[in-house]
Design a protein around this nucleic acid. Structure first.
Lengths: 222, 222
DNA sequence: GCCAAATTCGAACGGCCGTAAGACTTCCCC
DNA sequence: GGGGAAGTCTTACGGCCGTTCGAATTTGGC
């Protein structure tokens, strides 16, 4: 930012995320590059060049490249989980007793699929999260393995909705449902378009959510 | 192999794969390391050290590290697709008219899940394939996107089994089913064990196949 | 047993990487 | 407006990377 500290500059509408300027520039540029090309294929120099900041900024503001990745992962995961928890909570309020399976699954799948919409502000964040889940550092993988408190909310809810199922049944079906979700990166959509010879114009994420919900709910019905 | 060219050495049961000795050592070591640690995290030096061969072997026998990866990918993909095609063919023979959905899905899922068995010779190959699918080079991703002839066999079969479904329905549900499958790397199993607090002793792949088939079949029933 | 081709080997090259050190600038509070 | 903290900049270090080259060695046909 140029040294013009005019008071008029405060009229900019750039939302709340403006704590340290360059720290945020790095954060956003890194998230985008990681999401598009993968962690290992993006260098610190790529990030700082894209952000228009100095090379040393990453290590100054985040400590290391690994720590930067972990920072992005933690923040976006927290955001996504917050939206999911809110929807699950609302489903609980809407229903006396346990919500039906479909509403529980909707609370799990709707937030990430909303993010996936072409014009959504968090579209790149979801791509980042999906990638970080499989390509991330050992630290990230450790968190995914050990911190299951978030998922437990959903498995508990599903167990209450379907007390006839064994916990193992619920865990596996939840696992399958998440597999369906995590498979939705860009390339796969393309494959779909090739398979269907372009007959489908379904970049419409709402329709995709409906398909996924129907499939997963049927899987739980069995 | 030591220079003992005894005729008795031919009694070894090492199957067919013995064309160039070191070329195969490199192939096997690279597949294992790529599967366990990812393409980017394994150096040519790691591979040749694990294989017990000279550093230059990779470039001499395969041309480059990328070409080595692509070579492994091509061979293992062909093997897997061959087994799937065989099962689909047998399902066609078993049934007059079109095979039921379950048998088609079984032809798709059984081979990779068989490979996943703890003592199976191709266990590491499947981990490699799952990893290459998401972390591979642009060349691999290009093949996955454009070469859909293999998957088309299955979508065609499913369309014949369920002529009431639109092609789009079939494509998406097939996509979901593959997502369930591709999500089965090692780490995820661990998460399952944590979630279920160790109550499940289900490293049994047969039971996993049954669960996946039931879930996917139900998804297609809807 | 010889020769040419195929393979293996040791060594090194150029390049990009993450990170750190130190000088310099900006900001803010007293 | 002086001074210390916070941030930015330039520069470079050490290290690992994929690949290559020419020499040494092994192999296979005659």
């Amino acid at each position: 930012m140029s040294p013009t500290t005019d008071a008029a500059a405060s009229t900019e509408v750039e939302a709340a995320e403006t704590e340290a300027a360059t720290k945020n520039l790095v954060f956003v540029a890194a998230e985008r590059l990681f999401a598009l090309h993968g962690f290992q294929n993006v260098s610190v120099r790529d990030i700082t060049a894209a952000a228009g900041v100095n090379l040393a900024s990453v290590n100054y503001h985040f400590g290391s490249k690994d720590a930067l990745l972990f920072d992005i992962f933690k923040r976006r995961t927290a955001e996504l989980n917050r939206e999911r928890a809110k929807m699950l909570h609302e489903a609980n309020d809407r229903n006396t007793g346990s919500p039906p399976v479909r509403e529980i699954l909707a609370a799990l799948l709707t937030p990430p699929l909303r993010w996936l919409a072409p014009d959504h502000e968090r579209r790149i964040s979801l791509q980042f999260l999906i990638r970080a889940r499989s390509e991330g550092t050992d630290e990230i993988r450790q968190v995914l393995k050990t911190d299951v408190s978030h998922l437990r909310r959903f498995s508990d809810a599903l167990l209450r909705a379907r007390p006839d199922l064994s916990p193992e049944d619920v865990y596996w079906r939840l696992h399958f449902t998440l597999g369906m979700l995590h498979n939705n990166r860009f390339a796969e959509f393309d494959r779909l378009n090739v398979l269907s010879e372009g007959q489908t114009s379904e970049s419409d994420v709402v329709a995709l959510l409906e398909r996924m919900l129907a499939f997963a709910e049927a899987g739980f019905k069995g």
